[in-house]
């Protein structure tokens, strides 16, 4: 009998606490936002953070509250944006599909190695050593930091330079952040010109370090009728908004560093 009282007391207190909590969870239940739940179900669930929120639940909650617009989810693409728009009743949401582009063509055929590197297999580590192995100080090191962060298998290293498969790329932007040289940029997938170089060196220096690098000769800028190509800092840049995809700059480029994307 002596040990029964403590057992009873602890048991009763525990039971009481349990019952009170159970009742409280029913009485004080907070209705979850149904729209947020529905939106979360649509989102890909990759929690990549490309939308700028903490993850898919965070983005769904923000959309349900009206703080965020649908269409920020690049992995989901146009499909997800459209479905989210339907739930929110904001009608059709136009979403441009984007993809990441590597702005370098400095493969081992086009550039030389300025040193032998035997350290960590990481672009970030290599770039700390005198800017990396490539003869071009702006160029791709080809050690694959971008490849390691890509969840979609869209990146390959071909002949010492990263190449992105536009079909597989969902534009989550992870590689953009991973590249220590800042060579990867997101751009809309449409018929347009892309400058595959990031060298800001003077033309003469670029000529020496790479066989294909942009030398800032201005031919593309003069050829472009839409005014989409500008050369600044010895490097050509294409404005995706203005580019009509005519392809004249690509033809005019003496280094063949401007390529046309979205042309099947």
């Amino acid at each position: 009998m002596e040990m029964l009282t403590p057992i009873m007391i602890v048991g009763i207190i525990g039971l009481l606490a349990g019952v009170i909590l159970a009742v409280a969870s029913v009485v004080m239940a907070v209705p979850k936002d149904e729209r947020a739940e529905a939106l979360e179900a649509i989102l890909p669930g990759a929690n990549c953070g490309a939308c700028g929120y903490s993850g898919c639940p965070g983005y769904a909650a923000a959309m349900a509250k009206g703080e965020a617009v649908p269409g920020l989810c690049s992995p989901g693409g146009a499909d997800v944006a459209k479905k989210c728009g339907e739930i929110l009743g904001s009608g059709d949401v136009e979403m441009e599909r984007k993809a990441a582009f590597v702005r370098c063509m400095g493969s081992s055929d086009n550039t030389t190695e300025k040193m032998e590197y035997d350290g960590l297999e990481s672009c970030t580590a290599a770039s700390l050593l005198n800017g990396g192995t490539s003869s071009c100080r702006f160029g791709c090191l080809g050690l694959g930091d971008c490849l390691k962060v890509c969840d979609y298998g869209a990146i390959k290293i071909c002949n010492g330079v990263a190449v992105i498969d536009e079909e597989k790329c969902v534009a989550c932007g992870k590689c953009e952040k991973a590249c220590p040289k800042g060579l990867i940029k997101l751009a809309p997938v449409k018929k347009m010109a892309v400058v595959r170089c990031s060298s800001c060196d003077k033309g003469r220096d670029t000529m020496q370090s790479c066989k294909v690098g942009c030398i800032g000769c201005m031919k593309c800028q003069k050829t472009c009728e839409a005014g989409a190509v500008t050369v600044a800092n010895g490097l050509a840049a294409v404005d995706p908004e203005k580019c009509t995809g005519c392809g004249k700059c690509a033809e005019a480029c003496p280094r063949k560093i401007i390529t046309m994307c979205g042309v099947q």
């Binding site: 403590p6 007391i9 602890v10 207190i13 606490a17 009170i20 909590l21 409280a24 004080m28 239940a29």
Partner: peptide, 28 residues
């Protein structure tokens, strides 16, 4: 009841339940 030795056990139980209850109430 002369059950002073049970204090640690009972207190943890009560505090845990209490915090949970407080959280639910605050949420609402």
């Amino acid at each position: 009841q002369g059950l002073e030795y049970l204090q640690t056990l009972v207190f943890i139980l009560v505090i845990a339940a209490l915090v949970q209850l407080l959280e639910t109430a605050l949420h609402k």
